[in-house]
């Protein structure tokens, strides 16, 4: 496994998930899986975060918050959608109150399948997102970006 140039910080948000994926995300932080050995830190502040890990199918009330969190994160940033609900709405896709998938609200870079996702799968997803993060960082550098959040047009 390649070394990362940076220690990516991660922000987890539960957007109308059933908790199954959320406790697996938490399990990643605890001794058995321990993502901190990759330098990954779970932060509560979107302005500190590089990776946004979202679970759940997003409902109307959560939509704005997801947008807010995404908007507050500095560039480069990566979005990981974990679990069937976050990818497509899962079992709740037919429900009246569910938008069905994070990519209906913000652009998603990595999809992690499973219901509920296994911690191993989350680690896989985060590792994949790191490559994307580095590519985005290089792209940003080339364009001479400052890492400031993009202004909404």
């Amino acid at each position: 496994m390649a070394f990362f140039k940076k220690s990516p910080w991660l922000l987890h948000y539960d957007a109308s998930s059933c908790n199954g994926c959320d406790i697996e995300v938490l399990a990643c932080l605890t001794p058995i899986y321990d993502v901190e050995r990759f330098g990954i830190v779970n932060t509560g502040n979107p302005k500190h975060a590089d990776i946004l890990l979202i679970t759940g199918a997003v409902n109307v009330q959560n939509e704005e918050i997801v947008r807010n969190l995404y908007g507050q994160m500095p560039d480069p940033k990566v979005v990981v959608a974990a679990g069937a609900c976050a990818m497509s709405g899962g079992v709740f896709q037919d429900s009246y109150n569910v938008l069905g998938g994070i990519d209906k609200v913000i652009p998603v870079d990595v999809y992690v399948p499973g219901c509920a996702v296994r911690p191993e799968a989350i680690i896989d997803g985060v590792v994949q997102s790191l490559a994307i993060l580095e590519r985005k960082a290089a792209e940003l550098k080339r364009r001479g970006g400052s890492g400031e959040p993009e202004k909404p047009s």
């Binding site: 409902n59 109307v60 009330q61 009246y96 109150n97 569910v98 938008l99």
Partner: peptide
């Protein structure tokens, strides 16, 4: 109490 996509679903 809830903010819903659809009123009185």
């Amino acid at each position: 109490f809830y903010r819903l996509a659809k009123k009185n679903p």
